[in-house]
Write a protein that binds this DNA or RNA. Structure first.
Lengths: 196, 196
DNA sequence: CCTCACTTTCAAAGATTTTTGAAACAACTA
DNA sequence: TAGTTGTTTCAAAAATCTTTGAAAGTGAGG
């Protein structure tokens, strides 16, 4: 209650002055688009919307502001923020004289996509690769009964190997993008652009 | 009923001889892994499983074989096959003297991922880009009231532009991979590998 | 134009995922 | 320590997505 920026209810022209009608509309649209996109990518719509809101608003918001803006429950807001924080897409912030916790979204789009890539790789690709290797082991020791040509098993193994090899390649590409100086994709883009 | 390959029930050693215990197990595992992976990527588990089965078995199967192997209903099998066919991941095949329709999965992994990329781009990225451009237009004609510096709107537009620019870049990268001679990603990999 | 052998469709059922809201929890202040 | 303010948790409710199965559709032969 000591900060001038958080004045009572809406109505009167507080800091973010009048002409912000279009701004509001623009923000709302962005939130919807991002939410839609997220849910087609397997990310809960609300979580994506919270992220979108924090990104597009640009400055930290607290839980109540998020709840009001997106018309969601406290529990939902809290869970979404927790996930976003776990992912590293959102960080906590505090304002002097305000006990509420504020949340700020990462503003560098490259970093945002690096984080998403890192997490998806870790949670989705890596476990799949491990499972595929186990799967490969099932028909692996084929030398054991190679006196019986067993063509079916061999071609099965070939198909499996092709798939594993491909996914490992994607995996290491993702590594390149995610880790070193973080310039991996930018570099690739440049090179690819030149080469084609 | 005229082909020797589609003999009555299971049991007796038909063409794919005995020692196929491990083969079966390997196929089943692959199907589960792929189904799991698909569903974390927003693709219905069953659809992914049908695709996995056809890929890993390598030769065309008919609807009944798929139903039996995956223990799914006729409707589900039909719908999954339709989607896979729409995507271009599966093609129809026929066997002489058999009126049943057989389905074969694309066997080239690069082609598989090119198809997936093409479809996801078309169905998910392109509409998002269009919507984002519309969204940008909402706060677009900012010259109109530039006598009022309106910093909020300007920084909003900057954030939006950064995001749009990034997604357009991803979009054109996807194009490179998908379209020309289809060697786009392979090329990128080579260059990236050399450069890092 | 009827039948047979399949395939596709789609409303309802079932499964899964997401959201809610109220209670438990935590961290300050007086 | 009690009182406040704010955050997290989680079981149940709601929403969403997937599968089923029976009926409608298709088309090749006869």
């Amino acid at each position: 209650m000591t900060t001038p920026s958080s004045t009572g209810k809406r109505s009167s022209r507080s800091r973010p002055a009048r002409a912000s009608k279009a701004l509001r509309e623009g923000q709302n649209r962005f939130v919807s688009i991002w939410g839609e996109m997220g849910s087609s990518w397997g990310i809960p719509r609300t979580m994506a919307e919270v992220h979108a809101l924090l990104y597009i608003v640009g400055e930290p918001l607290n839980t109540d502001q998020i709840m009001e803006r997106l018309a969601i429950s406290r529990g939902s807001a809290s869970m979404s923020l927790k996930s976003l924080h776990d992912w590293g897409l959102v960080s906590r912030a505090h304002k002097r004289g305000d006990r509420k916790e504020y949340f700020r979204a990462e503003q560098d789009v490259w970093q945002v996509f690096r984080i998403i890539t890192r997490e998806r790789k870790r949670r989705e690709i890596d476990p799949v690769l491990m499972a595929l290797h186990d799967c490969r082991d099932v028909t692996g020791p084929r030398a054991a009964e190679l006196d019986n040509p067993e063509t079916d098993v061999e071609s099965h193994n070939e198909r499996l190997d092709r798939m594993i090899e491909f996914i490992e390649l994607i995996d290491s590409l993702a590594d390149q993008f995610v880790s070193p100086a973080g310039k991996g994709l930018q570099l690739a883009v440049g090179l690819l652009g030149k080469a084609v």
